[in-house]
Nucleic acid binder design. Structure first.
Lengths: 211, 211, 211, 211
DNA sequence: AATGAATGAGTTTTCATTCAT
DNA sequence: TATGAATGAAAACTCATTCAT
C-alpha cells in the first residue's frame, strides 16, 4: 500500500492516520518538544499499535511532518472562513489575538510550527520539503494571511504600494513577537496585558504604510 | 574542581573550555541542529578528549548552554562598543543589518539562539535558567539593545512615551523577521534585497511613534 | 507492557525472561562476581538481544535481583519437597550437605546470595526490597528451613524451648560456615573432608539444646 | 620507588599511605560498598592528590586491599592484647560482643571484610593473594582467634580433642551469624537482644565439646 | 491490515590511570 | 615527591524500525 504523503485531501485520510495526527497535536500542545516526541507516545496516545504507524508512514519524522501539514491546513481554512466575513481590519486582527489568548495549546502549537520552520532537524527539513511540494507551495504565509490582506487592500485599509510579501511578514512577525513575549514571560520583565494594544496598533501602522 | 557555570568572566574561562565553546559555535554555524549535536562532534572539533569535556561540564546540555551564553555575551559587547559611538539611529540600524548580511554563520547562530529560546528541549530550559541567573538577568533583549535605544531617546529620534520594553521588542522582532525571511529564502518567494529597506523604515517608524 | 517484578508465578514467566534468569545463574555459577556482571554478557549468554532485556526489566540490577528471587524460590521449593518426606533430622541435614557437595555451581550460587544479602550495592538493596515485598516476606530463612525445623520439634529431635528464629540461624550459620571453608579452601589450611561431620554434629547439638 | 605491598611493618608505612588507609576505613564505615569506592573519594578524604595515590600503589584495588590488611592486622593485635590477659573464656567472648555492640562502624567494617572474602571481585582476589603471602599466611582465622583458643585449651575450658581449625570456625561462624542477624534486622523478624545469650552459650557449648 | 516483541546501532557518561609540570 | 588536568575505554540504556504472526 502506498504511504501517506501529507498531500491527501482531508476526506481521504484513513481514520487511524487522523488518530496519529491528533496524538501529535496533543503532545505538542502539552509542551513536549518536537525533537523529544517518541513513536511509542504517539501510537499509545492514538490508541493503536506501534507497527500500524509504519504501515502508513516510513518514519517518525514523516508522521510528525504530515501531522503538521494537517494542522496548518486546518488553521488556514479556519482563518479564512472566520476572518474573511468580517469587514474591518482591526476586528480581524483582534479576533486573531483573541484566538491566541484563548487557550495555551494553540499558542504552543503555533510556536512549535515556527520552531519547526527555523531549526535544522530531520523533521524540520521534511516539513520544508513537504511545504514546497504542497499546494501551499512556496508561499506559505501568503497562504495563511493572503486573502485577508487582499481584502484589506480593497477596503483601502492597506497601502497597495507595499509588496504583499512584506505585508504578510509584517503581520507574521508581530504575531510571532507577541507569542515570544508570552512564551518568555518568565524570562523578560514585561506586562503582557499592555503589550497587545501596542502590537495591534503596530500592525495597523505597518499595513497602512504611507496612507 | 568546580564545574563551569557560564557566569565566568571571559578572562577566567579555561582555554579548553574556549575550544569547546568555539566548536559548538562552528557546528551551529555549519547548520547542525542544536538537538543533533553530539558530545563527540564537539570534543573532536575542539581537538580534546571526550572525558575532558566532562571535567568542565556536567552534561552535554551544560556545554551547549554555556557556549550560547558566551556567544551572546560577546555579541552584546560588540553591539555596544560598535553601535554606541555612532550618532545616528539610521546608521546604527544599517550597521546591524550590514553585519547580519556579512556572513551566514552569524545569521545561523542568531537564528539558533531564537530557536533555543522557543523550544522545550532540555538545552533550552537550561539556557533560560542560566539567563535568569546571569547578569543579563530578566531583561535579555534590553541587555542587547537597551543602551542604543536610550541614546536614541536622548537624541530625540525615539518617542519617549513608548515603553522601553516595547521599543526593544519592536527592533528585536523586525530583526528576527529579516533573518527568518533570509533563512527561509528557499521556502518563500521574496526578493530579500527589497525587504531590507522596508524593515529598516518599519523600525524607524515604530521607534518614532507619535513624534 | 508491564515490567517483570520478580513476583510472577513461575508459570507466567515469559520464556525470554527464563533465558535471562538462566544466563545470570550460569555466570554466577562460573564465578563472575555479581558486581562485575555486564548486561551484554547476560543477553549474549541468553541468546537474545540487549534491547530485549530492557523490554522486560528497567535496569541491570532488576534483571539480576529477579533472577535471584527465581533461584531462591526454586531452592526453597526443592528443599521442602525433598526434605520434608524424610523422617529423621540427621538424614535431612546430610542430604542438604550432599546437595551442596554435589556441584560447585550450587555452592557458588548460594554463596552469592549471602554476598548479595550482605553488601551495600544497588543490586543488594534491590534484592532486600524485593524480599520484603515478596511472600517470603520478612522471614526469609524461616521460609527456607522453617518447615523442616517444625517437623523436628514434633519428632522430639529439637528442643522446643529454643526460639524458632535462633534454631534457623543456627542451621543457616553452620551451612554458611561450611561453604565459606570450602570457598576459601585456598586460603585456610583445613581438610574439608574432616569438617563436615563436625558441622553436622554441631548443628544437631545446637538444635538438641537442653534435651 | 618500590610500591606498597601491604606487608610493611606499621612503623614503616609512609604518612600519606596511612591517610589513604584511614580514608578507606572511613568510607567502608560509612556504608559505601567496596565495589563502589572511587579513587577520588579516597584521595579527597585523605586530603592528598589523586596522582599521589598512584605513587604508592599500582591500582585502586591495591589501595583497598592493603587498607584491609592494615585494618585486620590492627584488629588482630587489639584482640590479642586485650583478650589474652583475661583469664576466663566467657569473659573473653562477652568482651568481643560488647565491642561489636559498641559502635556500628566496627560491625560494618568487619561485615565488609567477610564480604571481601566471599565475593569474586578483583579486589577480593587481591585480598586473598595478599593474605596468602602475608605472615597471617594460610591460617587467617587462626591468626585472629588462635592464641585465645590455645589459652582456653590450657585452662581446660576447651576440648583439646577437637581440631583447632574447627574450634576457630565455630567461633568465627557464630560471630558472623550474630552480625548477620543485626545487619539484616530490617529483613528478619528477630529480637537481637534475645539472640546474644543464645549465641554466647552456643559458642561455649561448641568449644566445650565432649568435656 | 494490525500488532507488539525483538533488535542493535548509537549516545551519554563515568572513572581508573597517565604524565607533564 | 606531589599533583590534578587530560584521557578514552567501557558500560548502561534508549528507541526507531522490522517482521513473524
Amino acid at each position: 500500500m502506498g504511504k501517506i504523503t501529507g498531500m491527501e485531501p482531508v476526506s481521504e485520510i484513513p481514520p487511524k492516520v487522523l488518530l496519529l495526527y491528533n496524538a501529535v497535536k496533543q503532545l505538542i500542545g502539552e509542551g513536549v518538544d518536537v525533537n523529544d516526541i517518541r513513536v511509542l507516545s504517539i501510537t499509545e496516545r492514538a490508541g493503536i499499535g506501534k507497527g500500524t504507524a509504519y504501515e502508513y508512514f516510513d518514519s517518525k519524522e514523516e508522521i510528525i511532518a504530515c501531522a503538521f501539514l494537517y494542522y496548518v491546513n486546518g488553521l488556514a481554512e479556519r482563518i479564512n472562513t472566520t476572518l474573511l466575513p468580517m469587514n474591518n481590519l482591526r476586528e480581524q486582527i483582534n479576533y486573531l489575538f483573541d484566538e491566541l489568548d484563548k487557550d495555551s495549546e494553540k499558542k504552543y502549537c503555533f510556536m512549535r510550527f515556527v520552531h519547526g520552520a527555523t531549526d535544522h532537524s530531520k523533521f524540520s527539513q521534511l516539513v520544508r520539503e513537504k511545504l514546497m511540494e504542497s499546494d501551499m507551495g512556496r508561499e506559505f504565509p501568503e497562504y495563511l494571511f493572503g486573502a485577508v490582506i487582499r481584502q484589506g487592500v480593497e477596503r483601502g485599509e492597506i497601502d497597495s504600494s507595499i509588496p504583499a510579501s512584506y505585508l504578510i511578514y509584517a503581520v507574521f512577525c508581530k504575531v510571532l513577537t507577541y507569542m515570544m513575549c508570552i512564551g518568555m514571560e518568565d524570562l523578560v520583565r514585561m506586562e503582557v496585558g499592555g503589550l497587545r494594544p501596542l502590537i495591534v496598533e503596530g500592525i495597523l501602522r505597518d499595513l497602512k504604510g504611507g496612507l
